[in-house]
Design a protein around this nucleic acid. Structure first.
Lengths: 121, 121
DNA sequence: TTGACATGAAACCAAATGGTGTCATATAAT
DNA sequence: ATTATATGACACCATTTGGTTTCATGTCAA
């Protein structure tokens, strides 16, 4: 029953690039919703919203479920883990930056002690 | 000293959407590099790489520094904090999902104890 | 000063993106 | 049976995107 294969031509990074799609995600986090109800929250056509939903589904960020004549969508946060993993790689960098900044601030008194080395900007 | 105002027309989400730009970020994390050296790592023209660098700079993800006739770029991870903050909002969702999954797995023996409530897909 | 190098800027192009409106179809309600 | 609702599938369009090549300019080296 596991996901057959991603095969998506849309990745998470591209999926969340659009502000409308990010808003969709936050909307669908709380509750499952059918397309028409969803599109009521956006200043664009239902068709446009539907296309965004398909892109999100393609990236695995939402799941769809047919209920009678409507298709209900809801958030699947799982692919965000990839983003989290990607981001975590950069944590050491901003930790470094914070450390450099801290060092800079703390050496306020001894200003001219090879300050250029810190290389903040 | 603080950034006067972003005024960037490119936000972080859009900046990291492109795989080339993500590769650029990882390349510039380690060391500051001039454009030509950078573009040697990519199967496209120097001009194309330069445009990607401008987009990253516009999003605040890289800083440029003129040194003689060359422009050196390096990573500035700071804007990634916005991404981290955005992501953190969704942590509760995948924690929920994991909890549901855990509950599902643990109730393997007592299978028919209102299983539908968990709503796993 | 003459030439080589590093880069940015501009003009251009194909494809992707984000929208629109119309139509067909499946389901629900009268 | 007929009508209304919910949606997907299309065809279409303007703008953005990601790439190209060419040219101008500033800097370093001989």
């Amino acid at each position: 029953m596991g996901a057959p294969s991603p095969s998506s031509k849309h990745d998470v990074f591209q999926a969340i690039a659009d502000p409308t799609r990010r808003k969709l995600l936050s909307l669908l986090g709380d509750r499952e919703m059918p397309v028409t109800a969803i599109s009521g929250h956006f200043p664009m056509s239902r068709t446009a919203v539907s296309k965004h939903l398909h892109i999100l589904a393609d990236a695995g960020l939402v799941k769809e479920r047919k209920v009678g004549r409507e298709t209900r969508y809801r958030l699947d946060p799982e692919p965000l883990l990839e983003l989290k993993r990607w981001l975590s790689y950069y944590e050491r960098f901003w930790e470094n930056k914070m450390a450099a900044l801290k060092h800079y601030v703390e050496s306020e008194d001894s200003k001219d002690t090879d300050a250029n080395k810190t290389d903040i900007q």
